[in-house]
């Protein structure tokens, strides 16, 4: 879990609204994010749209620590945002996440 201090913590969803090894879309203030719950039960967040074409990653498949884009299967490590090879070459922006009272909060600058 990312512990960077963020300027604002935004409540996103209930922690158990996301299955283990799964992803959920979260829209806030005209921006779309993807929130992940890893197989080892940690939470992460990235920008919600693929960097190849503007496609919602939350419709994709999470396997271990990889989110696969539902359009052309571009892959990212959602913990770091790192693009894992063709057709994606631009990394995803990541955001800090914290759990509080069974809820997931996103740290937005």
């Amino acid at each position: 879990m990312n512990t960077t201090t963020a300027a604002r913590w935004i409540e996103a969803c209930e922690a158990d609204a996301i299955d283990e090894e799964d992803v959920m879309r979260f829209d806030h203030d005209g921006h779309t994010y993807a929130i992940y719950r890893s197989p080892d039960d940690e939470y992460f967040a990235t920008d919600g749209l693929c960097t190849h074409e503007q496609i919602h990653l939350a419709d994709g498949l999470v396997m271990d620590h990889i989110i696969e884009c539902p359009k052309h299967n571009g892959r990212f490590d959602y913990r770091t945002g790192q693009a894992k090879g063709a057709p994606v070459c631009v990394n995803l922006k990541t955001y800090p996440v914290k759990l509080d009272g069974g809820k997931v909060f996103l740290g937005l600058a």
């Binding site: 919602h56 419709d59 994709g60 498949l61 696969e68 539902p70 359009k71 299967n73």
Partner: peptide
């Protein structure tokens, strides 16, 4: 978005 995950 409806089909991609299951096809994969």
């Amino acid at each position: 978005g409806r089909i991609a995950r299951d096809v994969r």
